[in-house]
Amino acid sequence: MSIRISATLEARMVDGEGRIVCVSCSHPLGPTDQPWKPAATLNELPMKGAGGEVYTAGDDVLLRQFNCPSCGKVLDTETALRGDPFLIDEVDVSALSDS
């Protein structure tokens, strides 16, 4: 069974362990009780110009793309000032181990 975490991620049992995986390619991104973002590849684009000339942001403003290391799909994005921590989202998937 699997439990939805977001449009791009879900929790599944892999070899008896709860894992967060990429919905597109099933690539595991770590255990369910850990933040998944460190396991993703990070693409930090300067926000300035990120989506065309109209993106007139300051120099330290970043568009962080967290990508699946296997299929390359964007799993999540966030706007961040350089040095600010990642936003952490956690979905309770304890039902996974109950089943």
Binding site: V54, T56, L75, T77
Partner: peptide, 17 residues
């Protein structure tokens, strides 16, 4: 004017500032 504020969701870009 220095930050986009309309955040994207599930991998989308924010709207321009």
């Amino acid at each position: 004017t220095q930050f986009p504020m309309s955040e994207g969701l599930n991998g989308g870009y924010p709207g321009a500032p």
